[in-house]
Write a protein that binds this DNA or RNA. Sequence first.
DNA 1: ACCGCACCCTGAGCGC
DNA 2: TGCGCTCAGGGTGCGG
Length: 291
Amino acid sequence: MPELPEVEITRRQIEPLLSGRTIATLSTTKDSYFFITKPAALKRRLKGQRVARLERVGKYLLAHVEDGQRLLLHLGMTGQLFGAGVSSVRLLSSTGSAALSPEGQQAFAPDDHTHLRFSFEDGGPEVYFRDARKFGKVQLLAPGERCERLDKLGVDALLANGDVLHAGTRGRKAAIKNILLDQQVVAGIGNIYADEALFIAGIRPRAQAGKLSRPACERIVRAAQQVMRRSIETGGSSINDYVQPDGSDGSYQDERQVYAREGEPCLRCGAAIKRIVLGQRSAHYCPRCQR
DNA sequence: ACCGCACCCTGAGCGC
DNA sequence: TGCGCTCAGGGTGCGG
């Protein structure tokens, strides 16, 4: 599940494959709610356009085109952005195509889940956006066009501070875990890093957000930044679905302290890690270390 | 304004 | 071997 660190790793690996290259053709799957901008419009408006750079905003990727258009991508739960020619690309949820060989040596061939396929005028490696579950999104913004999705995002988690979270939680009765997952307060935190940050900060996921002190908010934000920076360094979390664009596993999952560790001993105090459901999502915490 | 919940989707893992 | 069930959860939108 791509959260801020996984999206940032994707940005770093894919930007060199996009920037400075001119799109020759774009192929897509048939229209679905995956496409905020219709496939026909995407193809027409991107043909012959040169990509300038790839930016990350929260969990979104934003490809800037030289004519001022911007292509907004969200990886959802299972989205993958990767380049052709990487022999070890390991596909997620591959539907029995020959693309996935046991050794991962065979070249990737676009399948039913490959919603975007960019080819370039230089004839070099194609770039693919694949998403089996279609929780991802693609939207093409015209030059200067406002984007409500981006406008309502809170401060990027790596740039936030305790004041942002403190202000964003005043008067809120919801659990702090739910507020951390709300992208309008702080953008980029998902289920894994919310649990990990709350563990480090020593605060229970169910704690009422509006009652948290300023120092507590500061601890939470700093903890979130600490775990996400470390995750970026180690290639992200390959727990459920995520692999890096080059096909290799990340290794942050080896450092996680509470996420998906229900019943296992807390690495700090030995108590059994608990799992509860909060806002339709699982939350994990140490009943002794987190109050 | 805020909160909780249903929903979109498909593959993995499990029990039988 | 294969079926049917549950689970995973980011984001949106709804009703209360």
